[in-house]
Amino acid sequence: MIVIRDAVLRRTIQDQLSEADGITTTTAADLPPGHELFPYPRPDMIVLDAADDRRNALGPIARAVPLVMLIDAADHTDIAMAREVGARGILTKSMPAVQFVSAVRLVAAGGDVRAPAVVARNHHRPQSRNAVPLSPREHDVLLLLADGRTNQEIAAALYLSPTTVKSHVSTILRKLGVNNRVQAAAWYGQPLAEQ
């Protein structure tokens, strides 16, 4: 179920999902604020605009089915609200269609997905780290590595192959001058338990 009041965004998201194999959509665009969304048949997933004033009307159903929250940018308030309502996916509205559909499928399969911009917004690097010459993609990988993600989880979150992630991790360790993931996470300032 797509719960997006903005007609252009709603149509864009509906088109992206409807063109994907095995996905059917319905919308709750015409309901007034505060209206109970579910006399509708219970959906398998909800895609909700963080700006939609009906998000509080979802009630317990939002905790019973996977929820994807769309945000304009990596805004701290929207991210906090998305976590509070139990969103398993926090994605930006500008995410490319292929990545968006992949992220929706991952959430439907039980995963948690955060757009790279969302991950970056929730981690702040000290100025002294700017001297380390990491590429933007390496920085994205390091953010997730420091969050305790496995190579498979990083690959899923960033839409990369596990082999590519492994290569990025090796390069990051070399550039940081550390020997393992634990040391890289410690350098980043977020201790990571040895696995």
Rank of each mutant, 00 (worst) to 15 (best):
R5Q: 15
A7S: 15
V8L: 12
R11W: 12
Q14N: 11
Q14P: 06
L17M: 04
S18H: 07
G22P: 03
I23K: 01
T25F: 09
T26F: 07
A28S: 06
A29M: 05
L37T: 02
P39C: 08
Y40M: 11
L48T: 03
D49Q: 11
R54Y: 03
G59W: 12
I61V: 13
R63G: 13
M69Q: 01
M69Y: 01
L70W: 02
D72G: 13
A73P: 00
D78F: 08
M81P: 03
A82Q: 01
R83E: 15
R83F: 15
G89Q: 09
G89T: 11
I90E: 03
L91G: 00
Q99F: 01
Q99D: 14
Q99V: 04
F100N: 05
A103K: 01
A103I: 06
V104S: 03
V107I: 08
V107Q: 01
A108R: 06
A109L: 11
G110D: 10
P116T: 08
P116I: 09
V118F: 09
V118N: 06
V118P: 00
A120R: 15
R121E: 10
R121C: 06
A131K: 13
S135F: 11
S135A: 13
P136E: 03
H139A: 08
H139R: 12
L144N: 06
A146P: 00
G148F: 02
R149T: 00
N151A: 12
I154P: 00
A156N: 12
A157L: 01
S161Q: 07
T164A: 07
H168S: 04
T171P: 02
K175T: 06
L176S: 01
N179S: 14
N180E: 03
A186G: 05
Q190G: 00
